[in-house]
Computed example of a mutant assay.
Amino acid sequence: MGSQEPFLINTIENGLRILRFNRPKKYNAFNGDMYNSFMEALLEAGADPKTVITVVTGTGKYFSSGNDLGTFMKAEEEEPSSSVSDSIDPDTDEGKIALLRKKGVNRFEKLINVLIDFPKPLIAVVNGPAVGIGVTILPLVDVVYASDRATFLTPFVKSALSPEGCSSYLLPRIMGPGKAAEMLLFNKKITAADAKNYGLVTEVYPHENLHEVWPMIREWTKLPPNSLHNAKALISSHKRDFLKKVNQKECDQLALTLSGGEFITNVMEFLNKKSKL
């Protein structure tokens, strides 16, 4: 790594912690290091008494372009999922889930659970296009502010994958089933204005005025922190356990999808096109 900048920049000042995705040359795509850094930073923020409010944003033109295709294709193995046994026949669906969960899916499930459990106000400042996980984390935060240059795309089916990040439940609930289906099934890209109209985004700012959110957020850090965090706990307590079940089911399906021929063919076609550039 040498002197390379971290993939996630984690700063705190006067109660405001800012987590900034920092792979601008890769459009802030998530790789293994980004997953680990983001999860560790969220856990740190949740436990830190000096952190009142946490904001997630991106460096450069993108908020996040989603997952690196190689993230789930690497041979590195993690600890087995607690929901399945290592002795299960790998030729069965349960066995495939067990094996694929060791290659990135467990890590993904843990990150989403950390977001579900996050005990303090969490705000997203979407500075540019959001794709895949860059979209599906947004319903898991409390407030979303977006640049008018932001767009929102969940190309799971196009990538031969399946919805993740609790999006199969949260997006229909927030946007309505029809609009959610256009995104989750038919890969429709929506604008920031559409995202606000559908309830995915709280407020849209002209890109050159996006900086106006920061003084407002800094002012909120002066609110009584215990009352603020207790209110967040009440709001999230009604859905926390249910969302974890949704997350587990989606990750089981994702593991099966990753073992399927459609996904492998899709990746090979992508890599072949990339090699010819």
Rank of each mutant, 00 (worst) to 15 (best):
K273M: 14
K102P: 04
G165E: 01
L228C: 05
Y169H: 09
K158A: 11
E262D: 15
R107S: 12
I235T: 11
V125E: 00
L69C: 09
A195D: 08
A75Q: 10
K25V: 13
S82V: 07
K196P: 00
P24D: 05
K110I: 14
S82M: 13
K245F: 06
I235V: 13
G95T: 09
I112T: 14
A29I: 04
S81C: 07
S37G: 09
N14E: 05
Y62F: 15
D252C: 11
E76F: 08
K110N: 15
G128R: 08
T92F: 10
L277Q: 13
L122Q: 12
L185M: 13
H229G: 03
Q248W: 11
E208R: 07
W214A: 06
S227N: 12
I123C: 02
D33M: 14
R17Y: 04
I18K: 12
Y145C: 02
V56F: 07
R240T: 09
E94M: 11
E5M: 08
I12N: 06
G32I: 07
L153V: 03
G165C: 03
G60N: 09
G32T: 09
R149T: 07
K120P: 01
K249A: 13
M1A: 14
I53Q: 00
S83R: 11
K273V: 11
P121K: 05
P177T: 10
S162P: 05
E40D: 15
K188A: 08
L170N: 00
M73D: 14
V246F: 00
Y27T: 07
D241M: 12
A146M: 01
P225S: 00
L16K: 01
D148A: 03
G178C: 10
I133S: 05
V135Y: 00
P139A: 02
K232D: 08
E250I: 11
D117W: 03
V144G: 06
W220Q: 13
V157L: 11
S237Q: 09
I97K: 11
D89Y: 08
I235K: 14
T154P: 09
V157H: 13
A124I: 02
F7R: 15
V84E: 11
F118R: 06
G176R: 00
S82C: 05
L43Q: 15
G261R: 14
K25Y: 12
F21G: 04
T136W: 05
D89P: 12
V114R: 04
E219I: 04
I137H: 03
T71H: 12
L243P: 05
G2Q: 10
